[in-house]
Every structure is written in C-alpha cells, then in structure tokens.
Amino acid sequence: MEKFTLALPSSSPPLEVIRSTICGVVSSGNLEILVESNPKSDVCTLVVNTSAHGFREIWEAVLHDFALRHPAGGLGFTINDAGATPAVVSLRLDQAFEICCGEAK
C-alpha cells in the first residue's frame, strides 16, 4: 500500500458539516471515501491509502483539481483505494462532496 496526505487550499463550504459521510466500496477498481470535518476552514485535507504504487503525481493532479472545483475547505477526506482509475476517483470525490454538502446548495 502507498500512503500520503495532502493539505490543499480550498474555499469554505456553504454549510458546516455536521455528520460525516461515507461513499463507495473498497473493491477491485473502486474506492471508499470518508468525509469528516476538519478544524481549518480554508484547507481541505486528503489522506490517501492506495494499492496502486507509483501514481502519486496523478493522484495529486486529481485531488488538486477537486479542491479547486469545490468549496471543500474545512473538510477531511480519507480514501481507501483498490486501484480505481483517475476518472472513478474524481467521480467518487464529487459524489462524496455532493452527499455531504449537496443539501446546503
């Protein structure tokens, strides 16, 4: 497993996250994402555990893109990945964010 943590600048979400959310399933080509609140409202933290070694650059690109597209400040993401493609990762992150903050929009 390869593990790394990123703290990315991101704007604050429209509503405080009260309940954490889990999305997706850890199975081949898929991943789970847990969203929790984190104390810094202008930072989005992401903890990645992935079974695919040597793809950190691609991960960082996907995660940076996510933090830019969504107001994910004050949120912490824990990702357990079993070899999902960047497209699947991106989709799941969007879903997780949607479930977590969608109602506030």
Binding site: M1, I22, E32, N49, S51, N80, D81, A82
Partner: peptide, 18 residues
C-alpha cells in the same frame, strides 16, 4: 469514523475498509 479496520489485512499490506 472509528476506523476499526482489520489489523490482519494491514499486516498483509492490502486494502482496508473503514
């Protein structure tokens, strides 16, 4: 959130679920 994952899968260095 409590992260009670399998210590045995961790020892084998394969994916965990929360």
């Amino acid at each position: 959130e409590m992260r009670k994952t399998s210590p045995h899968l961790a020892l084998l260095d394969i994916p965990l679920a929360l």
